[in-house]
Every structure is written in structure tokens, then in C-alpha cells.
């Protein structure tokens, strides 16, 4: 594993995730504008903002699901987008939870959790299954080990998806609107699991509008609009005393209900 980013002058003191002047365009649309953001190890950062503000794109850049156009992005000491960086290897250190779960429908819950540990980490099957069962128990699904995704509720599927990420023992977990596709009564079961993960000291970036979650575990809330980071602060600062008109307008919309 090369630590190319560590040897770059001026880049020696990096966080776990380090955006420096990152820009990205979809055609003429500037979806990320001059993003500079550093996430420290064990830090939990919540990203919020109106839809189309670039928050999903932001975290999808971190594991290379989206490519950046210019600027620097250094993750776990490695430069994303550098041909010298082994992205496949870097991705094993980054768990990614999708809005639409994306569980493998042809595999059971346990097989979903053990697939990457067995094939990527080369952990012996029996050992991986043991660990997988423990993880599923930890997210409250000990009795669903052999269920297929189609047999699970949305909340259960998302918990399996989180267990699937944890199975790789990642250094970073990214969540892309993990509760947006869920029925209201299932949101808390997923958030509870995320809180537990955060309390174990995981470095996390979470795109969500769940303010209860943000207040409980986030050290920082980042507010994005039109591809730029408009405001950033502690959850209390942001939710109680938003500094900009745009964040106030956004908060008034999500708080109205």
C-alpha cells in the first residue's frame, strides 16, 4: 500500500478524509464547487442541504463512485483519482451505505455480509460466517441470517447493508441518505444501529436530514447548497443559530412538519 499522499509537500498533515479545492462538473453543471473539508479520525460529520445540492456526489467521490475534475482528495493517506492509488484496495477500507440498500437479491443476509470478507479479505469461510452472524446479531437480525433481501422489510435490509459494510472492518463509513427510502416507523431502528457504530469510534460522513441523529452523534454539520459548502458548525450552532439565509430557509422547510 503506497502512502503517496503522505509524502506530498504541504499535504503531510491530513485528516482521514481531506478535500482541497475539489471541483466537479456534470456537463456544464458545477456540482461540486471549491470544496475544502477535512474529516478527522473518529469524527462524525453530517452533510445536509436541499436536493441537488451535491451532498451525495460529495461522499460518492470519497470511494471513487464519482470522479473529481480538479483539486485534491486524500482518503486514509491516499490520493483519490491518482493512477498510483489502488482504488479497489482503498475501497475495502470504506464502507458505503446506499439510500436504496443495494443488497444482493440472490444472496441471503449472511451471504451478503460474508461475500467481500471471503473474496476480498480472503478470510476462511467458517470464520467469516461466524463474524457475519455476530454482526447480524449486533444489528438485531440474528433470526434473519438465512433470509433473502426480498423477505426483509426496508429497515431490516438497511441494517443488513450496514452489517455488510462492517464485515470489512472499514476505517470509514459513508451513508448516503440511509433512511430516506424507509417508512417512518423503520427509521429509528436504522438510526439506532448508526448511533452504535458512531459510538464505537467510526469515522463517518452521513448525508441525512435526521436532526435527532445529528444532535446525538455528529461533531459537525455541513450545509451544502448548489454544489458549495455554505455553512459548517456543531449541530447545536447549525440547527439553533443558522448563520446564512439559505440555511435558515432550508431548516424552516425541514422543520415545518
Amino acid at each position: 500500500m503506497t502512502k503517496a499522499g503522505m509524502t506530498q509537500p504541504g499535504l503531510t498533515k491530513t485528516g482521514m478524509i481531506d478535500f482541497r479545492d475539489v471541483n466537479k462538473w456534470f456537463g456544464a453543471l458545477n456540482v461540486l464547487r471549491d470544496i475544502t473539508l477535512s474529516v478527522e479520525p473518529r469524527e462524525v460529520v453530517v452533510v445536509c442541504g436541499p436536493s441537488g445540492s451535491g451532498k451525495s456526489t460529495l461522499i460518492r467521490c470519497i470511494n471513487g463512485l464519482e470522479t473529481i475534475k480538479d483539486g485534491h482528495l486524500i482518503v486514509d493517506g491516499q490520493r483519490v483519482g491518482d493512477p498510483a492509488t489502488n482504488m479497489t484496495q482503498l475501497r475495502t477500507e470504506i464502507g458505503f451505505v446506499f439510500q436504496s440498500f443495494n443488497l444482493y437479491p440472490h444472496k441471503t443476509a449472511l451471504e451478503n455480509v460474508t461475500l467481500a470478507p471471503i473474496h476480498v479479505r480472503k478470510i476462511p469461510r467458517a470464520e467469516a460466517e461466524q463474524a457475519g452472524r455476530e454482526l447480524l446479531a449486533k444489528v438485531g437480525l440474528a433470526d434473519k441470517v438465512n433470509a433473502y433481501p426480498a423477505q426483509l422489510s426496508g429497515g431490516q435490509q438497511q441494517r443488513v447493508a450496514i452489517a455488510r459494510c462492517l464485515g470489512m472492518r472499514p476505517k470509514i463509513m459513508l451513508f448516503d441518505e440511509p433512511t430516506s427510502a424507509l417508512d417512518p416507523e423503520m427509521i429509528s431502528e436504522v438510526l439506532d444501529v448508526m448511533v452504535a457504530v458512531a459510538e464505537e469510534g467510526m469515522t463517518m460522513m452521513v448525508v441525512t436530514h435526521e436532526m435527532g441523529f445529528a444532535r446525538k452523534v455528529a461533531q459537525r454539520v455541513v450545509f451544502m447548497d448548489a454544489g458549495a459548502i455554505v455553512e459548517s458548525g456543531t449541530p447545536d450552532e447549525f440547527f439553533s443559530h443558522p448563520k446564512t439565509d439559505r440555511s435558515r430557509a432550508f431548516l424552516s422547510k425541514i422543520l415545518r412538519h
Partner: peptide, 15 residues
């Protein structure tokens, strides 16, 4: 999304 999930967990192209 299936390919993205597999990609995100570090599976190689063949895997």
C-alpha cells in the same frame, strides 16, 4: 446499484 455496491466493497472486476 448492484455494481456500485460490489465496487464499494472492493470486489475486483471479475469478482
Amino acid at each position: 446499484g448492484q455494481v456500485e455496491a460490489a465496487l464499494a466493497s472492493g470486489l475486483s472486476r471479475w469478482q
